[in-house]
Design a protein around this nucleic acid. Sequence first.
DNA 1: CTTGACCTTCCAGTCACTGGAATCCCTATG
DNA 2: CATAGGGATTCCAGTGACTGGAAGGTCAAG
Lengths: 130, 130
Amino acid sequence: MNIKEAAERTGLPAKTIRYYETIGLIAPARQDNGYRDYSDTDTHTLAFLGRARSLGFSIEDCRALLALYDDRARSSAEVREIALGHLARIETKIAELEAMRDTLGGLVEACHGDARPDCPILADLASEKR
Amino acid sequence: MNIKEAAERTGLPAKTIRYYETIGLIAPARQDNGYRDYSDTDTHTLAFLGRARSLGFSIEDCRALLALYDDRARSSAEVREIALGHLARIETKIAELEAMRDTLGGLVEACHGDARPDCPILADLASEKR
DNA sequence: CTTGACCTTCCAGTCACTGGAATCCCTATG
DNA sequence: CATAGGGATTCCAGTGACTGGAAGGTCAAG
């Protein structure tokens, strides 16, 4: 099938699919006219990538996961380790964002938000300490 | 003062301070030898930027906040609007990450993580639906 | 006079795409 | 048969916010 159908089936933009090819995540066959020719296996791989990316795995994680997926001798421990590492990064990021949210939320609440110029948000950003 | 001292005072890397200059966030004086010369006002601005960035504001938000900070005729409502927009983006991001964490956490828990190859994580990534 | 720390500019790379230009291919219609 | 459209190709450049590194200039100490 052509790239457009592969895109529709996987939900990935055609641009992204081509990009995945340039970085070696997939290697579809070519038709006589030079068009890419995606097999069901290819779309399966692309969908796998789409789901892994939607869980926030990096491209390199995806590459590793794909290799493990194709490796019948894999241990589930290897997969789990990648997932755990990613989970830790997610938790860290969430904690960072929550800290931002809490600080910023407090400032927004303290700011009356009217026509007057005095503003606790700017005052906090300008303050020496913290 | 030279860039190194400005960096130490503000906690920002010298590279970042130079970068902020190239994008027009700050414009320190120059000494005769061409070295940048930071005033106390400059380091104050840099510290402001550092705190705004640490709250996750984008560079463009920072630029706007700085302009408002310098504008005596500002309304706190303008500041608050920027902060609210940013807060909304943070909340969205947190929700996305929490969804990832929940899904991934469930999969990690379901995976025994030993030498055997069968793995619910890979099974989920490879599954047709979801 | 040399060493070493500091400063300068400029170029390239990061991550994962995304947009756009120029060009080619295929099918259908007038 | 010419042409219009929709799709395909490649390649280049840009995103955000830095960060690393190269090549070279400046300054104070020993």
